[in-house]
Design a protein around this nucleic acid. Structure first.
Length: 292
DNA sequence: TACCAGGATGTTG
DNA sequence: CAACATCATGGT
């Protein structure tokens, strides 16, 4: 068992709400407010669970060979739930914007739920491009269940994210039975090859500036401005990365500000000047508002 | 039925 | 450089 202390501003309730947002989510599972997830570490699967009891309580349910498993899982969780961000600074900035300030009070302690694995966020955002989220979750489920490794624990099957090496070997036709468009299939292959061949490396990117990272990501065919910013905020702790084209953001802004129509891109650039430094975090809070 | 979904790319004017 | 067509399918 591993205990991870939580910072002062931390809401497990809002975390669970966000993680529970879609029933088809297949890369983690929630049962009785306990979170289950599988990671592939050094070619073996590790199943762990997280619950809350005056801090995060982590249990590892597999017997693994690697001596580093505990540390890797601990770091993963701190990254996944963004336990180190200085939320006070975000809340201070947000006070300038009445609507955002209200969301910060309503969801106090909500931390950005990230994707510690950059490959995962890129694949997920390509899947989500231009289609409704429910369909996107169906596509993700088919991809993960078809090409990801799995283990069974207490009668339930848990899936790990397919590796870049696995997906890089596929052809466009391999995706067609799962209702991926040719474009999405090609984009996923492109991203997988970039990781498998080492053209893109999360470790290398993490050392670069915002502009340099974005340039490298958008060099991959299929990764545009929205995808690059989405992945940077979810995987690379770019709290100011701003996926301004995001339809979910547009809807949330329209709802929260009581607008007649969805804001334009220009409107959003204007509004977001109030959130500079934390535009990604602000976006995450607006997304969360869609859940109620 | 037409239009929109957590967009990106390639082509056209 | 801006405007448009295309992608594929589920929902409204």
């Amino acid at each position: 068992m591993i205990l991870i202390p939580t910072p002062q501003e931390f809401s497990y309730k809002e975390l669970i709400k966000f993680l529970s947002r879609n029933e088809k989510e297949c890369l983690h599972r929630i049962k009785d407010d306990t979170i289950y997830k599988v990671l592939e570490i050094e070619n073996e699967l590790v199943l762990f669970s997280v619950s809350f009891d005056n801090g995060l309580v982590v249990r590892i349910h597999t017997e693994n060979q690697s001596p580093f498993v505990n540390d890797i899982i601990k770091n993963y969780i701190e990254d996944w739930f963004d336990l180190t961000a200085d939320l006070k600074s975000f809340y201070e900035i947000a006070r300038q914007d009445t609507i955002l300030h209200q969301l910060c009070q309503k969801y106090h302690g909500l931390r950005m739920v990230g994707m510690p694995n950059l490959f995962e966020s890129l694949i997920w955002s390509v899947i989500g491009q231009q289609i409704n989220l429910n369909f996107a979750y169906s596509l993700k489920q088919r991809l993960v269940q078809s090409f990801g490794k799995s283990i069974t624990f207490e009668g339930q099957t848990f899936y790990a994210l397919p590796t870049p090496e696995t997906l890089a070997c596929l052809q466009i036709e391999d995706f067609r039975p799962y209702q991926f468009s040719k474009g999405k299939a090609q984009y996923i292959i492109n991203i997988s090859k970039a990781f498998a061949e080492g053209t893109i490396s999360q470790q290398n990117l993490s050392l670069l500036s915002y502009d340099e990272i974005k340039q490298q990501l958008t060099a991959i065919k299929g990764v545009g401005n929205w995808t690059a910013n989405y992945s940077m905020m979810k995987s690379l702790k770019s709290y100011d990365a701003f996926p301004v084209e995001d339809v979910g953001l547009h809807n949330a802004i329209k709802n929260q500000y009581g607008l007649e129509a969805k804001p334009t891109i220009a409107d959003l650039h204007q509004m977001s000047t109030q959130w500079i430094g934390w535009r990604g975090y602000a976006t995450f809070y607006f997304w969360h508002s869609l859940l109620g």
